[in-house]
Design a protein around this nucleic acid. Structure first.
Length: 421
RNA sequence: GCGGCCAUGGUGUAAUGGUCAGCACGGCAGAUUGUGGCUCUGUCGGCGAGGGUUCGAAUCCCUCUGGUCGCCCCA
């Protein structure tokens, strides 16, 4: 038997209420903040991500799905870089800035699957490009935070940090490396590698043995240049003003190289390693990396599957999605065509309808109607077919009456509270 | 990419080397002429795949596949 590929999930009908609920809520939030939808291809030239996400990152180095082509195409491993490519390609810098966008996009990463970590997952992403005002940072953080609240998620923590920019980060990294220089024997092997390749990630090490070293390490926020300092201070001012309870996280860094200044992450209480449900940050250097003019930007992404995981853990149910409203049961050869026509008419009237199939007994059809939770059943037999009437049955009440066909449709529409079109 | 645990019908499970792999839920059908939910009866359907050990394997061993937990990384 075939199985879905490793690390992928089928989303079955019973799961769809979650998806619909989250997507509708998220889209409505994005629009409320002035954002418009965008959709980019599932695959891109590999360079888009190599340039944007960074050559030394895990995503680029070992997690991209390369397609079998000569063009070096890869399945999109994240959303931001692709949207920035589209921004440049379509000259969106000619639009009123900032350009505010949102999207739902599948992302693909070749990783070892775990609960909350899939090879294909879906992100709700939001980007605001072309403005560096920290008030914009605050807006996006606000959107993400309120979205979770609106979905009913509890006990979340918003971690916030600034990782500086090209002006001040190199200086900090030197300080950090100087600090680590005489401690390399005390830290784990990975950290020794990080020391050479990506010192910022030293702070992110989870090894027990490295914690004391990290705890005493110099903190980047003490080394921010004046503009970054100011940006970060303002952002915190704004967040406080709009009552977003953030937690300063001076050691928070992110695994994508394009981030500058603001970075943030939302984690549930008691989060494991797959805990982060949403994260983002500013990427003021990214457009240049992709060959465009210097253009600031900020965005976030949140994983739909992880949101669902947390909704379930917290016992939160999505609103029910409507099911079948009417069922057309029929028996006898004379009722065959009238039943098909009636079904057609009901659907034309906007009523969600299914018809009994397979020439089954009336008993079987009613049982079926009950199983698919149809509230009303319209029954046509020989007599009804001959007189152009139907038996109109309310399954919940158990009441039934014979009505002329047209009247039955009106009665049904009325009962369902819908208008016949 | 590293380490641990796990794998029986669609779902949840029982059977720890030896009767046709049992049960529940579920699907379908039936319980007199054209009426659902409850009940009863019948029926459908399984040892993840491939090797090996053994007289004999769901059960022991190996490989693969998949899941899961921790690490790494990330949404």
């Amino acid at each position: 038997m075939y199985q879905a590929p490793r690390g992928t999930d089928d989303v079955l009908p019973e799961e769809f209420p979650y998806w619909q609920y989250i997507q509708e809520t998220a889209a409505s939030f994005a629009r409320r903040y002035g954002h418009q939808p965008i959709r980019t291809p599932m695959f891109e030239q590999a360079g888009v991500f190599i340039r944007a996400v960074g050559e030394g990152t895990d995503i680029v180095e070992k997690e991209m799905f390369y397609l079998r082509t000569e063009e070096d195409l890869v399945l999109r491993p994240e959303g931001t870089a692709a949207v920035c490519r589209a921004y440049l390609e379509h000259g969106m810098f000619n639009l009123p800035q900032p350009v505010r966008l949102f999207y739902f996009a599948e992302a693909f990463r070749y990783e070892r699957p775990q609960a909350g970590r899939l090879r294909q997952h879906t992100q709700f992403g939001v980007e605001a490009i072309g403005e560096e005002d920290p008030a914009l940072d605050a807006e996006l953080i606000d959107m993400l935070w309120r979205l979770y609240a609106s979905l009913g998620l509890q006990n979340l923590t918003l971690l916030l940090n600034s990782i500086g920019d090209r002006a001040c980060r190199p200086r900090y990294l030197e300080v950090l490396k100087a600090y680590y220089a005489d401690k390399l024997e005390d830290v784990c092997r990975d950290c020794r590698t990080r020391y050479e390749r990506n010192p910022l990630r030293l702070l992110d090490c989870k090894q027990e043995s490295c914690q004391p070293v990290i705890a005493a390490a110099p903190v980047i926020t003490d080394y921010l240049c004046e503009p970054c300092r100011r940006h970060f201070d303002r952002l915190q001012e704004y967040l406080t003003a709009i009552e977003i309870p953030y937690t300063p996280a001076p050691r928070l860094v992110r695994g994508l190289d394009y981030y500058t200044r603001t970075v943030f992450e939302v984690v549930p209480e008691g989060a494991g390693s797959q805990g982060t449900i949403g994260a983002g940050g500013r990427y003021d250097g990214l457009m240049e990396e992709l060959g465009g003019r210097p253009t600031p930007g900020i965005g976030f992404a949140t994983g739909i599957e992880r949101i669902i995981l947390n909704l379930k853990q917290q016992g939160l149910q999505p609103p029910e999605v409507p099911g079948v409203q009417a069922y057309v049961a029929h028996l006898g050869d004379a009722a065959r065509l009238p039943a098909v026509r009636l079904t057609r008419e009901l659907r034309a009237a906007g009523i969600r309808t299914v018809m009994g199939l397979g020439g089954r007994s009336l008993r079987a059809q009613l049982r079926h109607a009950n199983a698919v939770a149809a509230r009303y059943v319209l029954i046509i037999g020989d007599e009804e077919a001959a007189s152009d009437t139907v038996q109109f049955r309310d399954m919940a009440e158990g009441a039934q009456q014979r009505l002329p066909r047209g009247e039955a449709i009106l009665t049904l529409s009325h009962a369902l509270g819908t208008e016949v079109r």
